[in-house]
């Protein structure tokens, strides 16, 4: 484990926001931090960043207590955290210098990132003259300016059009493959599934589910089979009638049939029977819940 948060507790006044949060993240594998609004995601992120300390619990990096002044964080906040009325090159240089770059390096880094994002011509412009999506890209440049080791992205795709989203995806993939610690927080499950190997679902200030997405999905009941076929309706009708020992139910929806088996072990027998019957099948796979389904399942009761 490269980064670990252990039993982090935080209250604001009477309200306990985090009630013992445990997190693990590995270098080169993005961790998706999921949770509904108000679950405590931003508070968790702020504690990791050192915006304020936790009331209890510890943060570890490579097993040793994490020292904020030693770590180069890159933080993309959900809400925009720059100066709307200031020239972009100046505020990027300023933030770079505050985080330890020399004036020259800071200017060069600002230029490099804006080139990478295809926004070089915006360097002398004021931030509030840009569209929301472009402001988000400037914010990203600000986060990555100092080539940080630990990157925290809070809703990075909000406001981006598909082209910009693709640019950002490339950058995130690069960061992951460069072995950085990447913490990714989003409500858009498709993005989380795309980048993250691991997820942690936060609900009411506690982690309710954590681990490899693949393993979490495999842990679900594997007794449902999805068949894509133009004969979906015939398949759905045929199975319950002729395979009563194996199949407990089936339904068709367009060109897709969902077959519920009596147990997951019956998979091969079902496949053999369907093949023997000569159905024209495009694909057959075990049904796995989407991340969305899992998320809803674990957070539905919350708030």
């Amino acid at each position: 484990m490269d980064f670990e948060a252990r039993d982090v507790v935080k209250s604001f006044g009477e309200k306990q926001v985090l009630r013992g949060v445990d997190l693990q993240a590995e270098r080169g594998k993005a961790l998706g931090l999921l949770g509904r609004n108000g679950a405590g995601k931003t508070t968790t992120i702020r504690i990791i960043m050192g915006v304020f300390p936790p009331d209890a619990g510890e943060l570890l990096l490579d097993g040793k207590p994490l020292r904020h002044e030693k770590i180069n964080f890159g933080y993309l906040p959900e809400e925009h955290g720059l100066y709307p009325k200031q020239v972009i090159s100046e505020q990027l240089t300023y933030l770079g210098r505050l985080r330890g770059l020399s004036p020259r390096d800071a200017r060069a880094a600002a230029k490099k990132w804006l080139q990478r994002l295809g926004m070089e011509e915006f360097l002398p412009k004021k931030l509030d003259t840009l569209s929301k999506g472009n402001q988000q890209k400037i914010q990203l440049a600000a986060a990555l300016l100092t080539d940080p080791d630990f990157i925290i992205l809070d809703e990075p795709f909000s406001g981006l059009d598909p082209v910009n989203a693709a640019v950002l995806k490339d950058i995130i993939r690069e960061l992951i493959s460069a072995g950085k610690l990447v913490l990714f927080s989003s409500h858009q499950m498709n993005y989380v599934e795309e980048f993250c190997d691991d997820i942690a679902i936060l609900n009411r200030g506690k982690i309710v589910l954590a681990g490899r997405i693949r393993e979490i999905k495999r842990s679900y009941d594997r007794s449902r089979i999805v068949v894509d076929s133009r004969q979906a309706e015939q398949i759905a009708a045929w199975c319950p009638e002729n395979l009563q020992g194996i199949v407990s139910g089936a339904e068709a929806e367009g060109a897709r049939a969902r077959i519920t088996m009596r147990s997951a072990d019956c998979k091969n027998r079902l496949l053999a029977a369907l093949a023997g019957q000569g159905f024209d099948m495009d694909s057959v796979h075990v049904f796995e819940p989407s991340l969305n389904d899992i998320f809803v399942e674990y957070t539905e009761d919350a708030i």
Partner: peptide
């Protein structure tokens, strides 16, 4: 107050 309301303060406080 502007830094607070635009949340630039959170970036600053972690840097200085």
């Amino acid at each position: 107050a502007t830094e607070k309301s635009t949340r630039a303060m959170e970036l600053l406080i972690t840097a200085a």
